[in-house]
């Protein structure tokens, strides 16, 4: 007996039809929106502030450091009790900008009652979702690229030094990593925009996740590691540190910070605890770019995987959703 197989119901036509139209429209919306201008202004101001201060500090040490240009991003200043640097501000503001671009991506269309009209055009839902994501990512990439070029230009102008090829390479990788980091928050915000009908709810949910990882996760990992692996001898202490590190790497913030550390501080040789014995015979000095990249590779792929996972989740949710408001 031959088993009766149900007919394969495969949809016809490309899921990418209309992708470009959606992307361009959303991109135009983002670039002209008051929301984005506000964020751009905020990012620009803080960037200029931190970078100028960093350059001020660096001017005293020109010539002593082979990676002067990278220091512009990482040198931290003290203002009262707070240490701040360009990358610190960036890792703080990027999630905010990404959430601002994505939190009302889908529920905004519901509320404006445009969703059914747009989806009754000859496109698949795929195109709408992917187009919105790409537009958000392009917007962030354009802003970040402009920022990176601006800071580099400022560095050349104020320090009178031209960045070396390796520094440019590291800078570019830093830019790509930042876009990937932004992609995580954008995808998360879009996930919530599909899940919740009220834009205010989705914005708050996304901000709550961000706050959780920025403030509570470091505290939580410490507590959990202490409870699970009490440090009563040196080996247990090492295990505790490793557990804490492993847990904290579930946070995109940690992944991004580690990528930045290895890319922007070439002298970084390990992203975890290093034993004295392991340092024996090590040559002091900076790692070449390829080695720094190798060091940060797991974190890098981890961030991209997070983007893909979140986007896939959003996609599944959106496909299953009913169109009627």
């Amino acid at each position: 007996m031959k088993a009766e197989r149900p007919p394969l119901r495969r949809r016809e036509g490309s899921p990418w039809t209309g992708l470009w139209a959606v992307t361009l429209k959303e991109l135009a919306d983002h670039l002209t929106s008051a929301r984005m201008r506000l964020l751009e202004g905020l990012i620009l101001l803080t960037a200029l502030g931190t970078v100028s201060a960093a350059i001020q500090t660096l001017r005293t040490t020109v010539g002593e450091d082979p990676f002067l240009f990278l220091r512009i991003f990482t040198t931290s200043q003290q203002a009262g009790d707070i240490d701040y640097s360009f990358v610190l501000f960036l890792s703080f503001l990027i999630p905010l900008a990404a959430i601002a671009l994505g939190f009302d991506a889908v529920n905004g269309e519901y509320n404006r009652r445009t969703l059914s009209r747009v989806l009754s055009q000859p496109i698949y839902r795929d195109a709408l979702l992917a187009g919105k994501f790409l537009a958000g990512l392009f917007t962030l990439a354009i802003t970040l690229l402009a920022l990176w070029l601006l800071v580099t230009g400022l560095g050349i102008f104020r320090l009178g030094v031209i960045p070396s090829g390796e520094e440019v390479g590291r800078g570019l990788l830093f830019f790509i990593a930042t876009v990937a980091y932004a992609g995580i928050w954008l995808a998360l915000a879009m996930l919530f925009s599909v899940q919740f009908r009220q834009p205010a709810t989705s914005a708050l949910a996304a901000l709550a996740v961000w706050l959780f990882f920025a403030v509570f996760w470091p505290i939580l990992t410490g507590i959990v590691a202490q409870v699970v692996r009490p440090a009563d001898n040196p080996f247990a202490e090492l295990a505790q540190i490793q557990l804490r590190l492993a847990l904290s790497r579930l946070s995109p913030n940690t992944l991004y910070a580690e990528v930045l550390l290895s890319l922007l501080s070439p002298e970084t040789r390990a992203l975890g605890p290093v034993l004295i014995t392991q340092l024996e015979g090590a040559v002091r000095g900076a790692l070449p770019l390829s080695q720094s990249l190798l060091l940060a590779w797991p974190q890098f792929t981890g961030m991209i995987a997070a983007v893909l996972l979140l986007f896939a989740g959003t996609y599944v949710l959106f496909q299953r959703q009913e169109i009627r408001a």
């Binding site: 016809e12 036509g13 404006r112 009652r113 445009t114 009209r117 009754s120 000859p122 698949y124």
Partner: peptide, 20 residues
């Protein structure tokens, strides 16, 4: 199965239509 072919030839005015 073939929504694009349908939607290319069918216009739809939804209940209380929305615009940008």
């Amino acid at each position: 199965r073939n929504p694009l072919a349908v939607k290319r030839q069918v216009g739809y005015l939804p209940d209380s239509v929305g615009f940008y």
